[in-house]
Design a protein around this nucleic acid. Structure first.
Lengths: 140, 140
DNA sequence: GTATTTTCTATCTTTATGGTAGAAAATATA
DNA sequence: TATATTTTCTACCATAAAGATAGAAAATAC
């Protein structure tokens, strides 16, 4: 049970953009992000596109174009990014769609998955990019 | 991010066997488990085999053969079953194998995944089958 | 208007999942 | 002991998703 490589790459890219966020008027080139964050350059294009559709970043083409965060780092969490790429974190099919399982509310396992999901989601929602940058700076 | 169907089926099968556990000398037939728990019968064979290798159940062939838990319900948790089928719950590659990521300890995201994993593992380890049966009985 | 820099999208390969059917093994019973 | 029965076990296949790439499309600077 893991997030996809795409989601991991997306997180790296977003972390990079969060660092660059103070430089208000600049946009980062995809190629630059790929190099710095060790992401296959041609693979990052697809990920950038998805993040853009999800409204997490703004993109612009052409010379001087590039990518930047669509909103402040404190308004973006790990959950936002992971769900934008991998879809909802359900842990088990029945959590997000109880109709797939005929046992429904009688199943004691169902409850555990629901609690586990809630707990995980809380953790990831709490991890906003401003907090991550703070931690990073504290380490150095 | 979900467990596989196999893992879900394995949980259902184990829940059934936990209910049957008091009948000390009987063994449940795979076909019976499949029918009761709504699992594709021929698919369950593969899952039973994996659970047996993992030491969670005892199997015996032939007439009067079948399957039963290898130890008490209170000594088996959801974590045991899920990991036996799907492998370790790592949430992200870097959690169980930090060498795959060159950023290592400098990465603030890594820490979040480690905490999230620990939290999830704790939850699943705490959910033993005797507790699940208790809950089930309380509902009826 | 053209060249350059960038995002975007259609396509391919590989891997894993979900599922099946038939072989092999073991026991009860005649 | 032979045979029929009941079961586990294993090799196989089809489908879908993931990972990755190269070339098309778009926008801007000059």
């Amino acid at each position: 049970m893991q997030i996809t490589r795409q989601a991991d790459y997306a997180l790296r890219a977003m972390l990079y953009l969060a660092r660059e966020y103070p430089k208000k008027d600049e946009r980062a080139a995809t190629s630059k992000i790929a190099e710095e964050q060790e992401i296959p350059a041609s693979f990052l294009a697809k990920i950038i596109s998805q993040l853009s559709i999800a409204g997490l970043i703004q993109t612009s083409r052409g010379a001087k174009g590039g990518v930047r965060l669509a909103r402040k780092p404190e308004e973006i969490s790990l959950l936002d990014v992971v769900e934008a790429i991998d879809g909802p974190i359900s842990l088990n099919e029945c959590v997000d769609d109880p109709s797939v399982c005929s046992f429904g509310d009688n199943c004691p396992i169902h409850d555990v998955w629901c609690e586990a999901k809630a707990q995980l989601v809380r953790k990831l929602r709490d991890a906003t990019f401003d907090k991550l940058l703070e931690k990073e700076n504290a380490k150095v």
